[in-house]
Simulated scan of single mutants.
Amino acid sequence: MKAKILVAVALLVALSVAPAASAKLRMWLTVGDGKPRVGQPVTVTLRAERELAYDLKLIAVAPGKSWYDVVGVVTGDSSRAKARIPRDGFGVPVARVAPDSWRAVVTFPRAGKWRLIIPNGAPQGFMIPPPVVRTIVVR
């Protein structure tokens, strides 16, 4: 009986401190050409649902590589991540174009299914799962 009460209390505490789904920051990623060729510059636009005091990040993950390892190494936010940058993926410089928008230009060095990832919804660290993942088929 005491065990059931403790479980119920723990559940109530967990639910009361968990953030509401409505508190999540929505983000979007738009790619100028969804099927680019190797070496072709592609414009990418990142948007957040509201003005942010920090910049979003954009990371390109190579075909067949672990997004966690690439994001962890590029951001420096995971001591367990193991990736060979830029072979496994790379950070893409972004420029703020509005309080809630950023623009980037990415060039993919080889063919395959690349993933573009916005890894963060906060000024530091990265989120699991990432808030935005977009697959791009590079020819």
Score class of each variant (00 low, 15 high):
M1Q: 12
M1W: 05
K4S: 15
K4H: 15
L6H: 07
L6T: 07
A8N: 02
A10N: 05
V13L: 15
A14K: 06
L15R: 06
L15T: 12
L15E: 11
S16V: 00
A18G: 08
A18L: 15
A18E: 03
P19M: 15
P19E: 14
A21E: 12
A21C: 05
S22K: 03
S22M: 09
A23G: 13
R26K: 09
W28G: 15
W28C: 05
W28R: 14
L29N: 02
K35H: 12
R37S: 09
R37F: 05
V38Y: 02
G39T: 09
G39S: 02
G39N: 04
P41I: 08
V42K: 00
V42S: 08
T43K: 04
V44Q: 00
V44I: 08
A48I: 00
A48H: 12
E49F: 05
E49V: 09
R50N: 04
E51G: 07
L52S: 00
A53S: 12
A53N: 12
A53W: 05
Y54K: 01
Y54W: 14
Y54T: 10
L56D: 09
I59Y: 00
A60K: 04
A60W: 06
A60I: 13
V61W: 06
A62N: 05
K65N: 02
S66A: 07
W67K: 00
Y68K: 11
D69E: 14
V71W: 01
V71G: 04
G72V: 01
G72D: 03
V74S: 04
T75V: 09
T75W: 02
D77A: 11
D77L: 00
D77W: 12
R80A: 11
A81Y: 04
A83N: 03
P86Y: 08
P86N: 07
P86R: 02
R87E: 12
D88F: 02
G89H: 10
F90H: 01
G91V: 10
G91C: 11
V92P: 05
V92D: 07
V94Y: 12
V94E: 10
A95T: 13
V97Y: 10
A98G: 06
A98V: 04
A98C: 04
P99R: 06
P99Q: 10
S101P: 01
S101F: 06
W102A: 07
W102R: 14
R103M: 14
A104D: 10
V105R: 15
V105W: 11
V106D: 10
T107F: 05
T107D: 05
F108Q: 08
P109N: 11
A111R: 15
G112W: 00
G112I: 07
K113G: 08
K113L: 04
K113M: 01
K113T: 11
W114T: 14
W114F: 11
L116A: 10
I118H: 01
P119N: 07
N120W: 02
G121Y: 06
A122C: 06
A122W: 13
P123A: 05
Q124I: 10
Q124H: 08
G125N: 07
G125S: 06
G125R: 01
G125Q: 13
G125A: 13
M127E: 14
I128H: 07
I128V: 13
P129A: 14
P130K: 03
P131N: 14
V132M: 01
V133L: 08
V133A: 06
R134C: 00
T135E: 11
T135W: 01
I136Y: 02
V137C: 03
V138A: 07
V138C: 03
V138P: 04
